[in-house]
Amino acid sequence: MSKITITIDGEKVEATAGEMLMDVCRRKGIFIPTLCDHKDLMPYGVCRICIVEWDRGDWSKMITSCNFPVKEGQVFRTNSEKVIRERKMIMEFTLARSSKTPEIIELAKILGVESSRFPTQDEGCILCGMCIRACSEVVEANAIGFAQRGSHRKISSPFYHEATDCIGCGSCSYICPTKYIEMKEDADTRTLPIWNVTFEMAKCKKCGQKIAPKKQIEFLKKRAKNLPEGWFDLCQNCR
């Protein structure tokens, strides 16, 4: 990969060709707000908060930095008035949707948005799609997806019933930026209420501690090869 030089906010910055602009900014310590970007997932570009201005000389264009591959000589502005103004408007849209979510309120404050001029809702989910992307890209279980479209869009298990392909790994809950996806555990079971699933937990044959949902272990057994006999019967401690 070839090294290139781009200009961000008037400063020359070295980068690798094809690298996403947001990563370059992060490395330089330039603050780019985002609600849907995660390093381990493919860029999705839906929250649009990370927009920056791409200076083309006599005209400029707004682009999202999370999925913009940089090329030699490009010039960007991350804090122009236009960027600040438009980020605020988008934040207002998001805040109107999730008016009671602490993470959203905090980011809105950072961007200088105290309240939204639009009718507010209290939606915990911001539709960033991280749960769905984690489930398909990282876990490869493809258990959940979006349902409907437009303003009716929501995250959902198939048919709004039990997510039959869910293995209960909890990645969706772990990655959810607004803590909307709950995961509950008691002595023998794990529940993800949003997908209508409850799993029986496998226990360590030696110490009796919970290891993981039985279904997840079955899922792993199919994929993991060349592991010693009984590897999945024991917890990490006793292995």
Partner: peptide, 12 residues
């Protein structure tokens, strides 16, 4: 095709 995806398409 995962059922979740089929469902998404069917509702989209």
């Amino acid at each position: 095709i995962p059922i979740a995806q089929v469902f998404s398409v069917a509702t989209f």
